[in-house]
Design a protein around this nucleic acid. Structure first.
Lengths: 185, 185
DNA sequence: GTCTATAAAGCGATAGAC
DNA sequence: GTCTATCGCTTTATAGAC
């Protein structure tokens, strides 16, 4: 066994930030090498499927994070209103108060969407369903729960776009505060 | 004078659709040739600055369209409420009821943002200011006008992201309908 | 497990004929 | 104004030494 400087688990978050910053098409192996310190040899050792596999695993890791930290609390938290409020805090933290972009949103808008369509669709569908379930438990009607959950998801994505376009993270924090008023918490 | 199959004005919209579909990084001269039927020679004749100039001119053309069809009516329309309602109709039509993506939003999220930061910033800033002015004329307080204009812009962008992620254009139309209820029209 | 070297393809861009 | 040919660089991916 030769030397082993990096765990797979340490590499994925670095990869995630590169994809976030440059998009799927804009990310090159050279950029990844620069960010991780790993040469092509190591990269292809960990990810025989190359760039596509790297992106798929990064998306899966993000998905898993939301599953544990957002979807499950929404679905199973004993207090639904509390779970919704916690979601907003998690989102604010995860997106670094608007300074960080949603990689899954970036992929959804890009040409690579077709490659990752299932992962992108599943992420937003499960998030929407979990939030709608929590809203129903917080005494919203089913129709209103669906409408408000969709509204919340789209506000989060739109706030990230606008914050980045105007180069003003406060746009995002303000939108999250408005969302809190609009949702039962 | 040799043959002349294409006007610059006919090329730009085609370029726009290519950039929309593939993003700035994902767009290649080969794709552009495929879409326009123009070889590299012609392309560089029209756009000596290459891909970067093409994107800049496409963004400028989109900007000009919104200036004429959205910003000016919002700022100078005799009936502010009517201008706001017209904006929603224009937006719904322009984005093909959610089947078309906002190129300026795509650029804002991508790595090419730094190249086009001024154009991206200016587009959203002017849109937001024009809408806020119309909202004040429709008897909103200055603070509320600013807040609602920001909310509207981010809902439009977010709805485009979510509609594409879920592959369901109705998400966009529904969000526009909600916006109409939330805004004075 | 990590590296360097390199292959093979695609990229943006230019030159020059017509 | 449009084309073809081509340059020089970067890309993803592989091979093989250590």
């Amino acid at each position: 066994m030769a030397k082993h400087i990096a765990e797979r688990a340490e590499i994925l978050p670095l990869l995630g930030e590169v994809f976030r910053a440059h998009g799927y098409e804009g990310t090159t192996l050279a950029l990844i090498t620069e960010s991780t310190g790993l040469g092509k040899g190591s990269l292809y050792h960990f990810f025989p499927g190359g760039k596509e596999q790297m992106a798929k695993e990064v998306l899966a890791e993000i998905d898993a994070w939301f599953e544990v930290n957002v979807f499950v609390p929404l679905l199973k938290g004993s207090d639904a209103r509390r779970a919704i409020a916690d979601m907003l805090v998690s989102v604010e933290t995860y997106f670094r108060s608007g300074k960080r972009v949603c990689l899954i949103g970036v992929v959804a808008l890009g040409a690579s969407r077709d490659f990752f369509a299932d992962q992108v669709h599943s992420y937003f569908k499960r998030w929407g369903d979990a939030l709608a379930a929590a809203l129903r438990r917080a005494d919203e009607t089913p129709a209103m729960a669906k409408r408000k959950s969709e509204d919340a998801l789209l506000v989060i994505q739109g706030a990230l776009v606008l914050a980045r376009a105007l180069d003003d993270p406060k746009v995002f924090s303000r939108a999250m505060a408005d969302l809190k008023d609009r949702l039962p918490t």
